[in-house]
Design a protein around this nucleic acid. Sequence first.
RNA 1: GGGCGCGUGGCCCAGCUGGAUAAGGCGGCGGCCUCCUAAGCCGCAGAUCGCGGGUUCAAAUCCUGCCGCGUCCGCCA
Length: 595
Amino acid sequence: MRQLRELIADEVLMALQQIGDVNPESTFSNITTPRHSSQGDLALPCFSLAKTLKKSPQEIASLLVESVSEKLTKLVGVSKVSNEGGFCNFFVDPEWLASQTIKPTLENLESIGHFRPPSSLLIEHTSANPNGPFHVGRSRNAILGDTFVRMHRLAGDDVRAEYYVDDMGKQVGILAWALDNLDEEKVTEILDAAEMNEPSSYPHKEDHRRVRFYQAANLLLNEEGSNVEAGVTELVQASEEADEYTLEKFENAYQPVLDGMLETLRRLGIEFDSFTKESKFIIDGTVDVIMSQLQDSELHGEADNGAHFLELEERGVQGKSTKFYFRRGDGSSLYATRDIAYHQWKWSEANRLLNILGEDHKLQSKQVGIALDELEIKNPEVVFYAFTKMPGGKMSTRRGNVVYMDDLLDEAAERATEVVREIRNDLSDEELTAIGEAVGISAVRFNIIRVSPEKGINFRWEDALSFESDSAPFIMYSHARACSIGRRLEEEGHNLNSLLSKDYNWSELSESAASLVKRIATFSEELDNSIVSQRPNQFCSYLLSLATDYNRFYRDNHVIDGDRVNCRNLALSEAARILISAGCTGLGIIAIDSM
RNA sequence: GGGCGCGUGGCCCAGCUGGAUAAGGCGGCGGCCUCCUAAGCCGCAGAUCGCGGGUUCAAAUCCUGCCGCGUCCGCCA
């Protein structure tokens, strides 16, 4: 709690110095938030001082309290200082905290979430091969990436969301080949034979339609003695030489697929500011420059057939192969080489770079990082996330072992609509559907970001669609409750702004109201912590706590009491409502006002 | 074989830059709607923090060995 910390810092530092601490700053930096509210709002562990001061931690804590207590408790804002078990415990005065935080929250809507000077950054996420519909396995990247975009924006940063389009190479080549050489009938025949001809719920959406061509071509590719391989290879080679005709053919093949994927993403609330094509760096020649620069590296080596690599063993890369190839024997570049050029270009576009990558890209990312070092180009910040597994194993577009996001969202919206229908009998079908859509989508997003990125997710329908307490609908429900208060006041002819413009008396806050005030006060620092530690799940937890605290407040602090309005409780409720709503925006949850 | 990551109540999951009684949720049991939305609130039961060593005043957290799971080790993307 930064408000309390700032308030007590000077006194505590002085007291630490007095009792003989030679590095009070360092001791003070250990101050933490206690687990239990009975232990105050901040606690300073005194154990590290025991040795140098030759006193027990308990004794030290007690000395500190003695020296600091009188002055601090005279300060407006500190209600109590005590010590227990070697900790020094500081208690904030909730009335003071409320006077510091509630009004600013109500009045400075545009600065909600701001905690530190803003930065400008480019976040690259999703960047999935445009070869088929967006599926659940790919969605963790998109949802996580978009959440970072949103959280940074909430914190005041200038963010550009970027999609790197793989518009060349094998994946798109296979798709282009298939569209050229197969027809619907043939595709159906091939998929039937492999028992992969599953009916699509979106047969006319291009990503769903074309993925069948892609899957069929992959099946042909694996057949003995097929000439498909040769055809695809020819295309791929042409694309890597930036052959205009081929690249256009590729674009015609993938663009409708990409559009379909983006449509799905848009339904999830995910949009991009810019798209950069991989071929750009072949066409503009930077890949060639990079390759020749890398040949000057002391790590550079050349294989028998003329392929070039960096030997990374001395840079900590271990395994069967420690070589990083950046140029094939025929002189052409590889995906990773283009990625280096892409990073060089990205640094010309932003001050900070953040990449969202699956854990399968860890080695690749390390190799690119070392190559960037060799070229004296800064490394980007990277967030890795673990895979989403299906009960049958890894999801794969190629093998058809997938759950498409379009289907998951339909199911989510449908189930949510049924839940609303059971609860609300005063709404039209249209309203029910709208709420169901918002709830379903929010729930799906939340169930992915609520778990720490490095932990694997086992996809289960019932988990992905969970509407239980640890979920987006729970948060949305608190928000809707808060909205209903304002709505009712306005229906009764009140003007909310004039009710809120009064000066409140914050004395004698109930326990639940005080808890809510404290929770509200830590919004920005919780957001910032979550961003800095690259764990959106932390902000998820915070928002769940805020919603829980609001629900408790709601239980025993009424705003409307007969024909009287408690303006102070209204101010608290509105501040909470505003922050829940802002938090939802930051996580991609749709904060509807009725549900 | 090697690298990286993960392993917390029956299930999901937080805590992991060491600190006080390991936080929530689901499921189970029991309470609360003459009162602003009960998708809520309150209580009870349930944890050898994968296993073994070590460092420390203090270990779920750091180190190390083992076991299990994931992922990577392509002149693929």
